[in-house]
């Protein structure tokens, strides 16, 4: 049973996750791959971002609980030289599914994701099953309200 849950959600404790450099183009392609199957939450965070670190476990729990309907893609905005720290954090949080680290200029990455995102972290983008961006949140979501927010924006 435990193995089944891990396979479904990509969440488990201690295992080292893959961390792949990603551009906005690659990221949006990943989002499009889920079209017709799942809604997608793209969460941009960083290990140095205190609000990100604080709310991260909520996203992990949400990814686990809604894995049948929602894919959560974590994108670290840490500097590439800090990739090991990112991996350690992800492992400690129990994320085992492939995760990403931003690998292009801020301006290009930010602009491609939303014309409203100024670049502040954390940033959360919610795409529905058609691949449409239906919600964007800059800064942390209300404490304890991540799942509720995601459900609310996916089912307005």
């Amino acid at each position: 049973m435990a193995m089944a849950i891990i396979a479904l959600t990509g969440v488990a404790c201690g295992a080292a996750p893959a961390l792949t450099p990603v551009t906005s183009e690659g990221l949006l392609e990943r989002v499009r791959e889920f079209r017709g199957r799942k809604a997608v939450v793209v969460h941009v965070w960083a290990t140095w971002c205190a609000p990100c670190v604080k709310e991260f476990p909520e996203f992990v729990r949400m990814a686990q609980a809604r894995a049948d309907r929602i894919a959560v893609i974590f994108v670290s905005a840490d500097f590439p030289k800090d990739a090991d720290r990112v991996r350690e954090f992800l492992a400690a949080q129990g994320v085992t599914r492939e995760s990403y680290i931003k690998s292009e200029s801020d301006q290009k990455f930010i602009s491609a994701l939303s014309d409203q995102w100024t670049g502040a972290l954390p940033a959360t983008f919610v795409f529905d099953t058609s691949g449409a961006l239906v919600a964007f949140a800059e800064e942390a979501l209300p404490e304890g309200g991540v799942s509720q927010y995601i459900e609310e924006v996916l089912n307005p």
Binding site: S114, Q116, V134, A135, F136, A137, E139, L141, P142, P156
Partner: peptide, 9 residues
């Protein structure tokens, strides 16, 4: 608070 939530359908 300072969180911008932008929704479009």
């Amino acid at each position: 608070g300072a969180t911008v939530l932008a929704l479009s359908a």
